Simulated assay, not measured.
Amino acid sequence: MTDPAGTQPSPSAEAGRILVLLDASRASQAALEAAATLASTLQGELQAIFVEEADLLRSAAFPFTREIGSLSGQPRPLETGPLESRLRRRAAHLRRAAEQAAARARIRGSLEVRRGSVRREVLALTTPGDFLVLGKIGWSAATGNRLGSTARRLVHEAPGRVHLTGTRPTRPDSPVLVVVDAPETAHEALAFARARARQQQRPLTVLLVPLDDPDAARERDRALSEWVAATDPPVRVHSLRSSAPRELLRALERQPAAEVVLGRESPLLVGPQGDALLGALEAPVTITP
């Protein structure tokens, strides 16, 4: 763990831009509101993004392409002209929504419309200093997947912090919870979680993940003790019994969190189990670099 007590300049929760990916899903509005709140709290600029999917437009050029009506459930031709008109209307609607959200939060806000692959366009716009906000439930919600495929990839590939919106209200007394495992990534997650706890005037809870290396675990725990002693607000520290994702879910059942903070290199986020964990978490989740 690198200087957890703060003798080096620590990363704060402030961000230059709060980027939010908007689409036609039901989670999009929740993501926009969460992004506006973050931008207001973190003193950042709200930048909404709407990507017109190039693959969809290319498909519409074929005469045999059909789409299924969301209300009627009936197939109908997917044609380029009507699709372009629909995308323009959607962009206009999202621009108004972004401007209204920014006005309510008293921040600067705008919408950028891009055309191409959603993942590639978002990554092209995102810098390490940006904070990317994503709705947890995308188009894949109809299949029962609570974390959309685009969100799954951006969580791991975005260069800066990523925030996944929650799926339930948070209680006023719920803490900000930070998961600490790998010592080399703990500093960023701890510093960010401490800042978020102060901003939200909430308690801070640290969950320690068991490490295979006893020496690394002792060094992490020693440094953490020094950091806890020097930290305001007061910190509660608990240890998980194993590094399995289900242990984190059990801990959150006992003590629901207002926000969960995880380092991107955490073993908890590796592979399909990590994606399933993010989908199962009901609280908002922030992934730190």
Rank of each mutant, 00 (worst) to 15 (best):
A105K: 07
V270M: 04
L21C: 15
R254P: 02
L269C: 09
V180F: 03
P169F: 13
A91E: 09
P272H: 10
L154R: 00
S266F: 01
L21Y: 05
G135Y: 01
A102I: 04
P9R: 11
G6E: 06
A276Q: 10
L46P: 00
R90T: 13
S140V: 10
A35V: 06
A244E: 15
L46H: 00
A186R: 00
R26P: 13
D23P: 01
S243P: 04
T126Y: 02
I68T: 05
I107L: 09
D215H: 12
L248F: 02
A182S: 14
L252Y: 01
L208K: 08
D215A: 15
G135F: 02
V228G: 05
P75N: 08
A30E: 14
E184Y: 07
S110N: 12
L19H: 00
A151P: 02
R95M: 11
P210G: 10
A39S: 11
H93I: 07
Q200N: 13
R115H: 15
R108F: 15
V155C: 07
R108E: 15
L281K: 00
V285A: 00
A91K: 01
L262G: 01
R196N: 08
V180H: 04
S140N: 12
E53Y: 04
S174A: 13
L71G: 13
R220I: 11
A124F: 08
S117Q: 13
V133W: 02
E53F: 04
L111D: 05
R88G: 06
P175W: 02
L147W: 00
D212H: 15
T65D: 07
G116M: 15
A13S: 09
P203W: 05
L208N: 12
R218S: 14
E84P: 01
R236Q: 11
T127C: 12
T185W: 04
S266A: 10
Q201V: 09
Q200T: 12
H187N: 13
P272G: 06
A223G: 14
V179H: 01
R95Y: 06
G135I: 04
H238N: 06
G271S: 09
E184Q: 11
A15N: 04
I68P: 02
G144R: 07
E188S: 10
D181R: 02
D3Q: 05
R152S: 11
T167Q: 14
F50W: 05
S10L: 12
R104M: 05
A124T: 07
S85I: 08
A280I: 02
F64E: 09
A251R: 00
A230K: 14
T126W: 04
L94R: 00
A251E: 11
R152T: 08
V133T: 05
P169T: 06
G160W: 04
S70Q: 14
H187K: 12
R96N: 10
Q47R: 14
S72R: 02
P82L: 07
Q47I: 13
S28A: 15
H238V: 05
G135Q: 03
V206A: 10
H238P: 00
R241A: 13
L252V: 03
A34H: 06
H187W: 15
R96C: 08
R119H: 15
R194F: 11
T231Y: 09
E33G: 09
S149Y: 02
V206L: 15
T41M: 12
A182Q: 15
F131A: 11
P272Q: 12
H163S: 07
R161F: 03
D3F: 11
G279H: 03
G73C: 08
L32R: 01
Q100N: 13
G135S: 08
V20I: 02
R146Q: 11
F64N: 03
Q255F: 03
P75D: 12
L111I: 06
